[in-house]
Amino acid sequence: MKLKYIFALFILVVIAQLFVPMQMIFGQEAVLNNGKAYKFRTQPVDPSDPYRGKYITLRYDINAAISIDSTWERKQDIYVYFEEDSLGFAKLTTVSKSPLVSTKDYVKTQVNWYNKYDRNVTFNLPFDRFYMEESKAKPAEDAFRIAQRDTLPNNTYALVYLKDGEAVLKDVLINEISIADYVEQK
């Protein structure tokens, strides 16, 4: 009798271990399939995580907004709303402490700092790591940095899908070429 309970508990643990990762995968796939793609201008750095591997840390031009509300607190939830500009890049439209009734796409993140003198609230976008194969991460960072110095405007960006407050970083592009393919071409 006790063996039946142990076996049933074992089966429940196995199902739970399969369910959680599958739910995460299906959630991201839903954003990629049904979300809206935005291009975010970036600036790279190349750190390493011993558990998850090599990645490019992406810093975005969009990292602050002017706000007359001076009650922002560090690590407070913030909702950042976007629309596309005339060149197809993401453009910040508004920030809010709570979700707005709006058709605009948004992401939920946290406040880094509020500067009372400039009336500026700063934040980091939640899609700031692009993971790559170990051998390609350093060459990718170098290629990205060189492309950033290029005189061509808007030649480096991250392609991010947004849907219902969720964001998935699909790719990083240099001159309209995926960074992984760009590194292989060099």
Rank of each mutant, 00 (worst) to 15 (best):
T109F: 04
S135M: 03
F26N: 14
E133T: 11
V160P: 09
P21C: 08
T151D: 13
T42G: 00
E133W: 10
N112W: 10
L162E: 07
P47H: 07
D77W: 00
K108Q: 08
N154G: 10
V121I: 04
S98T: 05
P21A: 10
A180E: 06
A147C: 06
K75V: 11
F10Q: 12
Y81W: 07
N112A: 11
T42C: 01
F7E: 10
Q17T: 09
Y182L: 01
D118Y: 12
I62G: 00
S48W: 15
F130H: 05
L18F: 13
S96F: 05
F89G: 05
A64Y: 10
T71Y: 12
I11G: 12
K104A: 03
L9I: 13
E29H: 13
F130G: 07
F130D: 06
R119K: 13
P47G: 07
Q43F: 15
V14Y: 08
T94E: 06
A140Y: 08
V45D: 14
T109R: 02
N63F: 11
Y182C: 02
K108G: 09
V121F: 02
G88K: 02
T103I: 06
E176D: 13
D118W: 09
N154E: 12
W72R: 07
N34I: 09
A137E: 10
E184S: 12
T156W: 04
F127E: 11
Q28R: 13
K136T: 10
Y106D: 03
F82Y: 08
L162P: 15
T93H: 01
D105A: 04
L152E: 03
A158C: 05
R59L: 14
A158E: 10
P44G: 11
Q23Y: 08
Q148Y: 04
Y161A: 00
N63S: 15
M132C: 01
Y182Q: 00
N34H: 15
K104F: 01
T71V: 12
L18C: 11
Q185L: 08
M24S: 14
F82C: 00
E184Y: 07
G53D: 06
L87Y: 12
R52Y: 11
K186A: 03
I68L: 15
I62F: 02
S70C: 04
G53F: 15
L87N: 01
I11D: 04
P47R: 02
K108N: 07
S102R: 03
K163F: 12
D46S: 15
V121E: 00
F123I: 02
D77M: 07
S48R: 15
Y81E: 06
D164P: 05
F127T: 11
V20W: 12
D61L: 05
S102W: 05
A16W: 14
T93Y: 04
D142Y: 06
N34Y: 14
W113E: 14
F7W: 08
G165E: 09
W72A: 06
V172C: 04
N34L: 14
E73Y: 09
Y182T: 00
L3T: 11
Y106I: 02
R41Y: 15
Y5T: 15
P126W: 10
M24P: 05
A137R: 14
S86Y: 02
F10A: 13
K54T: 09
V107T: 05
D181Y: 06
E141V: 03
I25R: 12
F89R: 01
M132S: 01
V172H: 04
P153I: 09
Y157C: 10
P153C: 07
S98C: 05
A37C: 00
D150A: 09
P153K: 14
A180G: 00
L12D: 07
F26V: 13
A167Y: 03
